[in-house]
Structure formats: structure tokens, C-alpha cells
């Protein structure tokens, strides 16, 4: 069983929901990322999605675009991100780490070299935004052989036929994108998400985590009620941007954001 499956199964047994933060590796500086990851673990998160900076993040809104620019200013390459995960694993071997990013840095490194290095560094899953399962035939088996979960996106526009096909290619969990748009836009409609996620649950046994538009404890709880986990990204990245000059203050701010979300999710436990 993968580390991701283990964590999600344990939570399910407890009637709890996964809290999954997203931050961009290398933002505000690659030397700070491991510390921020530990801070988030202390605040009760279950899985960390670590963004791999890319020069042209087409699926992201301005908040994460700027985070990529800050990280790239300090040369946060994919290799550097893997080194960050390796360092994190020296003191944490329980919290799963999912790399989330775009395909070109992985292509540039080489699929096999990346799969080897990711597994060796202690990465648990890979979510490549611009790689639908149709194009993943060369890379997904390399991940599977090394015990890396392949996580794919589902969207409001995804047909039933595709939901089934994508779930067949996925392991760990599927990531449901709550609305048509880029990251950081504030247009989540909780009723629509609830209906769609319930429908996805009918089509796959995999856990469903929901991301895009979750900004506070209230939306986290509303979405957590209907899903297996919530992914929180832009609001954290925005907090990093605003507190980048003072890392201790930043860690306090992240904790202050995540604590109420954790409490709100746990208050759903039955």
C-alpha cells in the first residue's frame, strides 16, 4: 500500500477528511520550503502538494504565477525540488508528498531519470496538470513500477466516460477541480461540487479530493462534507507572498490559516 493510500485509509477509518495544502517549492526561497512543510504538518495537514515551478503555468491564476516567478528567481529547478523532498524525508517519513506541476520540466529531465530520482527522494505521487491520461502512456508505467501514485484531474466538464477512464489510470486519489477556471479564482459553488463529487463517487472507488476555490474553514468544511479531502492552495501561497520578508511571521500566519480548517474538518467527524 502506498503512503498516500495508507493515510487516506486511516483517515477514512476515523471518519476524518484529508487536509491537503499546496505551496510552490522554492517560494519565497528554496532554503525555506522544508521548514514551511514541517510547519504545515504541525498544523495538522495530511498530504502535501508541492508545486514544481514552471515559467508558463497556464492553468494557474496570478497568485501561483507570481509564486513560480519568485521560486525561479532563486533557480528552483525540478532537481532542487527533489532535493527539498529528500531533506524533508530526513525528519518526516509519514506525510505523503505529491509533486504538482507541468510536463516540460519532467520531459527535460527525462521520464526515467525523473521517476528514479523522485522515488529515491521520497516523493509519493505526481500530478502533471497538462498531462491527460491519453498522453501519459510512456510515463505512468515508470511511476507505477517505482510505487509512485499517478494523480489526475477531473473537472466539471469531464464526461462520465472520461471519469471512468481517468479513474482507471489513477492511483492514490483523484483531484476534482471545483470549477472551470484557473487557481485562485473565487467562484466555487458548493452545491454543484457536492452533486458532482457524489456522482464521481458512484463511478470510482478511489478517494476524491477537491481543490480550487477553498479559502477558509467554512468552504473547507462545506466541501469536506461531500469529499474525502480538500486541497488549499492560492490562499496559502498568497500568505507566503505577503509574509515573505519574515519567515517566523509567515509560519505563524500559515498555522493560523490551517488550524481553523483542520478544526472545521474534524468537527465533521461522525
Amino acid at each position: 500500500m502506498s503512503r498516500i493510500e495508507g493515510v487516506l485509509q486511516t483517515l477514512k477509518g476515523q471518519g476524518r477528511k484529508a487536509l491537503i495544502p499546496f505551496i510552490t517549492a522554492g517560494d519565497p526561497h528554496p532554503d525555506e520550503t522544508v521548514g514551511l512543510m514541517h510547519t504545515m504538518v504541525d498544523a495538522g495537514v495530511n498530504i502535501i502538494e508541492l508545486g514544481v515551478p514552471f515559467s508558463d503555468p497556464m492553468a494557474d491564476g496570478p497568485v501561483i504565477q507570481l509564486a513560480c516567478e519568485r521560486a525561479l528567481k532563486h533557480s528552483t529547478s525540478l532537481r532542487r525540488v527533489l532535493a527539498i523532498v529528500r531533506e524533508f524525508r530526513q525528519t518526516n517519513d509519514t506525510t505523503p508528498v505529491v509533486l504538482m506541476g507541468y510536463l516540460n520540466p519532467i520531459e527535460a529531465m527525462g521520464y526515467e531519470a525523473f521517476a528514479d530520482a523522485a522515488a529515491e527522494a521520497g516523493v509519493d505521487g505526481v500530478l502533471t496538470v497538462d498531462l491527460p491520461p491519453e498522453e501519459a502512456g510512456d510515463v505512468a508505467p515508470l511511476f507505477a513500477e517505482r510505487g509512485l501514485d499517478s494523480i489526475f484531474l477531473l473537472a466539471p466538464t469531464t464526461t462520465d466516460e472520461r471519469i471512468r477512464a481517468i479513474a482507471d489510470h489513477s492511483s492514490g486519489y483523484v483531484y476534482y477541480v471545483s470549477f472551470n477556471g484557473v487557481t485562485g479564482a473565487a467562484k466555487i459553488n458548493v452545491e454543484e461540487v457536492a452533486a458532482k463529487v457524489a456522482h464521481v463517487h458512484e463511478l470510482t472507488a478511489l478517494p476524491v479530493a477537491v481543490g480550487f476555490g477553498i479559502r477558509d474553514a467554512e468552504t473547507a468544511a462545506a466541501v469536506g462534507r461531500v469529499s474525502d479531502g480538500v486541497i488549499v492552495g492560492s490562499v496559502l501561497v498568497d500568505t507566503i507572498a505577503r509574509n515573505q520578508a519574515d519567515i517566523e511571521e509567515l509560519k505563524r500566519a500559515l498555522t493560523d490559516l490551517l488550524n481553523p480548517m483542520r478544526e472545521a474538518l474534524d468537527s465533521l467527524a461522525s
Partner: peptide
């Protein structure tokens, strides 16, 4: 059928656009 010209082309987009 998948939009490939030899090794090139294809459809590398986020899921939201696939149906369109």
C-alpha cells in the same frame, strides 16, 4: 487519432479543456 505527427503534436492541456 490523438493528434500526433510522429513524435510531435498531441493534446497536453488541463482536464477542463479536454471535452471542448
Amino acid at each position: 487519432a490523438r493528434g500526433h505527427f510522429g513524435a510531435f503534436g498531441g493534446r497536453f492541456v488541463s482536464e477542463t479543456l479536454m471535452d471542448s
